[in-house]
Design a protein around this nucleic acid. Structure first.
Length: 512
RNA sequence: GGUGACGUGACCGAGUGGCUAGGUAGAGGUCUGCAAAACCUCCUACGGCGGUUCGAAUCCGCCCGUCACCUCCA
């Protein structure tokens, strides 16, 4: 049974869907005004594994990952220029063009990292009507007020009603009041410094603006997720997540908005937060400038990294730590991860052989039974039990708050067993083909389907072809025509024909 | 200041009071035409000081150190 750590209750809870077998999952997606960095990838990778595992558990998952293309203000105060607009102005293009560009880049990188596309990928700008609707509900409930064409959420009033603003991040409204920064004063429109904007009036120079009951403007920081989560996952979804740094204020505000609207829920039953990626122990972030862009990281070198690392190595690296632990990036750690990843992939190839052998039953039986006396069947009880234990351990890890680090450790133990079995016929005789095939299926399922780790072909086809042509030329020089024919036929089966020209041996794609 | 984490062997990184985490690196060995891979063995650590306990990396206290959130941030 899967347990998940719920930030809302601060403990691990058994996962039960609100409406089984459906499961609604929402991940706060990227703000598409710049290139994604490694830190931006962790949430999507973790939630990709989570949704893959939920599907493996036979749940019908609807996975929503939004695109924030509006609504993030640049300055500390609730005023200032939208990040999209700022980027657009700098590049002298349409804001939507900026959004589209980085959305495309983001999708490309996420696919490379093995993240399956979400079922719904809603854009904030496409849900202005829904957001206005939520604001109207909150106003109707007396928890928001309009000033000068802007609408603010009334945090103190909400808190007075016993809703407890701060329940997610575990902070009291008194403490928050006491710790209000001096720099944040001067937002005269707000009744309380804790209030946050639901709708902001657009200043004349603002490009991204929409009509509303309060005049032309744009939605506030936290509204889109509440509105879109409700639209696609209902009043109460199952799992809502994002980085730890979104817990406050973003997710806290989301809960307030949902409680304050007609939904009257915490928006999601489970609030799940992944920890940060650090560089030399310090959080990777755009503002600190110590980030490693995904595109650069795949090519390398960049920033603190002297080498490039493939997307799958990066994915494996992230999954080797538990999602609630911080992970520090370094060449040492990534190089170790690369070897581990390749080991796991070699295991996948070994399984193809193991399965092929088991399928041709005679081969296995001959090999395994041969050393035994006539008429005796090998005793596989102990071997089978051991194999099944190794498989079970993998799922123990996954079920324990999606502890991929433990699951991977168990996979390596299972892999060692496979390697031992494959080494000798005597070893192979210690397990039944039924138990073996179960274990093989489990390994494949976990590595490929759940952890989403695919083999990355590292061989260069061009180089291999060149090598083959050298053998061809050699064989031809030796007049070893049988070899020549074999090579020619093999290449032809790959759609490639060899052309003997006066200048030398060349190749072309077969036109047949 | 408030809230919350964390300090594990050369490196990364799991650890639910007693049972080998795992990966990488290193040493030795088996196998091998040479290698590689694989397998076996070794290197067996928990910031410090106290306490609870038959027993603590794991619980409690204090101290030292690091980090995150409290402002947009995954």
């Amino acid at each position: 049974m899967l347990t998940l750590y719920n930030t809302l209750t601060r403990k691990k809870e058994e996962f039960q869907p609100v409406h089984p077998p459906q499961v609604g999952v929402y991940l706060c997606g990227p703000t598409v005004y710049s290139e994604a960095h490694l830190g931006n990838a962790r949430g999507p990778v973790v939630f990709d594994v989570l949704t893959r595992y939920l599907r493996h558990l036979q749940y019908q998952v609807r996975y929503v990952r939004n695109i924030t293309d509006v609504g993030h203000l640049e300055s500390d105060a609730d005023t200032g220029e939208d990040k999209m607009e700022k980027a657009a102005r700098a590049a002298r293009i349409e804001p939507m063009q900026v959004a589209q560009h980085f959305t495309n880049r983001y999708r490309q990188h996420m696919l490379g990292l093995g993240c399956l596309p979400p079922d719904i990928e809603p854009q904030a700008s496409g849900h202005i009507i829904e957001q206005i609707q939520v604001i109207e509900e909150i106003i109707a409930n007396g928890l928001a007020y309009e000033v000068n064409g802007s609408v603010y959420f009334d945090v103190p009033k909400y808190d007075e009603e016993g809703k407890r603003y701060g329940k997610l991040s575990n902070r009291s409204i008194e403490d928050q009041m006491a710790n209000t920064r001096a720099g944040l004063e001067g937002q005269s429109e707000k009744r309380s410094p804790l209030d946050f904007a639901l709708w902001k009036k657009a200043s004349p120079e603002h490009i991204m603006r929409w009509p509303s009951p309060w005049g032309e403007g744009f939605p506030g920081w936290h509204l889109e997720c509440s509105a879109m989560s409700r639209k696609y996952l209902g009043d109460l979804s199952d799992i809502h997540g994002g980085g730890l740094d979104l817990m406050f204020p973003h997710h806290e505000c989301e809960i307030a908005q949902s409680q304050g609207s007609h939904s009257h829920t915490d928006e999601a039953r489970f609030w799940v937060h992944n920890n940060m990626i650090t560089v030399n122990g310090t959080k990777m972030s755009k503002s600190l400038g110590n980030f490693v862009l995904l595109g650069d990281m795949f090519k390398g070198p960049t920033g603190p990294l002297a080498f490039g690392y493939s997307p799958m190595v990066v994915r494996f690296f992230l999954l080797q730590a538990h999602y609630r632990s911080p992970v520090d990036v370094s060449d040492d750690a990534l190089q170790a991860a690369r070897k581990g990843y390749r080991k796991l992939m070699n295991g996948l190839r070994l399984l193809d052989r193991l399965t092929a052998d088991s399928l041709s039953g005679e081969v296995i039986r001959d090999r395994t039974v041969a050393p035994l006396a006539e008429g005796r069947q090998p005793d596989t009880a102990a071997g089978d039990a051991e194999l099944r234990k190794l498989v079970a351990d993998v799922f123990v890890g996954l079920n324990d708050d999606l502890n991929t680090a433990r699951a991977i450790a168990s996979l390596f133990n299972l892999l060692r067993k496979f390697n031992t079995l494959a080494a000798t016929t005597a070893a192979m005789a210690t397990v039944s083909s039924a138990a073996l095939s179960e274990a093989v299926d489990a390994y494949r399922a976990v590595v490929s389907d759940i952890l989403g780790l695919q083999d990355e072909p590292r061989a260069n086809a061009e180089e291999l072809l060149k090598l083959t042509l050298e053998f061809y030329t050699e064989a031809k020089a030796e007049k070893a025509y049988d070899k020549v024919d074999v090579i020619r036929a093999a290449l032809k089966s790959q759609g490639i024909v060899i052309k003997d020209t006066k200048a030398g041996v060349e190749w072309a794609y077969s036109e047949e």
